[in-house]
């Protein structure tokens, strides 16, 4: 009822999961990591994209991923670990094929995000921060994702699922589970989380041209202006100091 419980004991904090040393980082991955490091005036700038790329290979920030990044950038593994544990998009344990985020920051929470998270959690049978045993879904309580005019918001692999309701969410999850095509409200066809991480690292997946220019809410002001024939002043038609519209249009 009141959101998540207050946690005060942190037995597993402080680093990634060292017990799982599995990795898919191969020569190609290392070459790509080096390529990222080479894009910047100073190589260390590439660390965030490099860690995204590590996740696209290993499904999490793996010990091997930390070591490789440290070696390529000439910094200590502790420094890489400090960065990897600072940012919430980096996972210590494998995320699901599809990573589901439900926004429960104040506005989304009030608009129904809390209820939505509860329903999604029930539907998937996992709590936030967990991954389904079949590896298909992981669930995260996300903070404001900059789509408040589409609240409540759900994210699938960091694609927007706007104006979410429990019924719509259930339908999306069912389709994803069944391997059917799902379209983001304002994005591309849903791929999978690892592919998304690869795009964030800076590797194109050729899907930029999918999806609309803008969502409905984004266009409300523009549509209204067009209806009412409101525009910005024509260049050259104005003097330097116009009175404020609030005073004019009352």
């Amino acid at each position: 009822m009141s959101g998540h419980e207050f946690q005060s004991y942190f037995p597993e904090s402080g680093g990634v999961d060292y017990s799982d040393t599995s990795t898919a980082i191969d020569d190609r991955a290392i070459a790509e990591l080096r390529q990222l490091a080479g894009r910047y005036p100073q190589a260390r700038s590439a660390l965030l994209p490099m860690l995204h790329l590590v996740q696209s290979y290993d499904g999490r920030i793996s010990p091997r991923g930390i070591e490789v990044c440290a070696e390529i950038l000439g910094i200590s593994t502790a420094q890489v670990s400090g960065v990897a544990t600072f940012y919430t998009m980096y996972h210590r344990r494998p995320a699901g094929k599809h990573h589901i985020g439900v926004c429960t920051t104040a506005l989304c929470a009030v608009m129904g995000g809390d209820i939505l998270l509860e329903k999604v959690s029930e539907k998937l049978g996992i709590h936030e921060g967990e991954t389904t045993p079949d590896g298909l879904f992981s669930l995260e309580r996300v903070e404001c994702n900059a789509a408040c005019d589409f609240a409540p918001i759900m994210m699938v692999n960091w694609e927007f699922m706007d104006n979410m309701t429990p019924a719509k969410a259930t339908e999306i999850l069912d389709k994803l589970a069944a391997g059917q095509e799902v379209q983001s409200s304002r994005g591309a066809t849903i791929t999978d989380w690892r592919s998304a991480e690869r795009v964030l690292a800076g590797f194109d997946d050729g899907r930029a041209d999918e999806g609309p220019t803008a969502g409905e809410a984004s266009l409300r002001g523009l549509n209204l202006a067009q209806e009412r024939n409101w525009t910005a002043p024509a260049p050259g038609s104005t003097t330097a100091s116009a009175p404020a519209p609030s005073q004019e249009k009352k």
């Binding site: 402080g14 070591e67 910094i75 600072f86």
Partner: peptide, 21 residues
């Protein structure tokens, strides 16, 4: 010797090492 670093964030922030090093 930056083999200790601040890790985690916010109220969880702590001093840490990379476990293998």
């Amino acid at each position: 010797d930056p083999f200790i670093a601040l890790v985690e964030r916010g109220a969880l922030q702590q001093v840490g090492i990379y476990e293998e090093h």
